[in-house]
Nucleic acid binder design. Sequence first.
DNA 1: GCCAACGTTGGC
DNA 2: GCCAACGTTGGC
Length: 152
Amino acid sequence: MRYWLVKSEPSTYSIHDFEEEKVAIWDGVRNYQARNFLMQMEPGDLVLFYHSNAKPPGVVGLARVRRARVVDPTQFDPDSPYYDPKSNLDRPRWITAELEHVETFPQMVPLSELRERFSPEELILLRRGNRLSVVPVPEAVFKEIVRLAHEA
DNA sequence: GCCAACGTTGGC
DNA sequence: GCCAACGTTGGC
């Protein structure tokens, strides 16, 4: 059982979109390091949902891995912005996971608070220049973030 | 809107 | 294989 954080721009796909849809294939990730993390996800893993490019940016909800190592269908769709002509059906290049919505937090945990409470060493998200849209989160950090999201 | 950081592309 | 140019991410 592992813990993760995924980023999404709310203007593209927000926690509210996810709450309505309930289940989503986490498609469109086109970075090998992020993909390698996606491929390590297992059913039952818990995933923090982070709004990037938002005002303010921060952790806004919780998801759970429903299916592991799902082929990202958008890589084969010429009409998709995520189409990858170099991928092929026999050896798909982009593998992801299917997530289910667990909770939209009663209060978001903004990036500024994450910076106050955690170090860049323990939370990859905080490392300078980090652009990975999928990162692992240590259990203790995960639990603390969930606690903060429910604090009165 | 700015710009630092980073990834990718393509000429050589 | 190197690396300059370019594109993207994402906080501010």
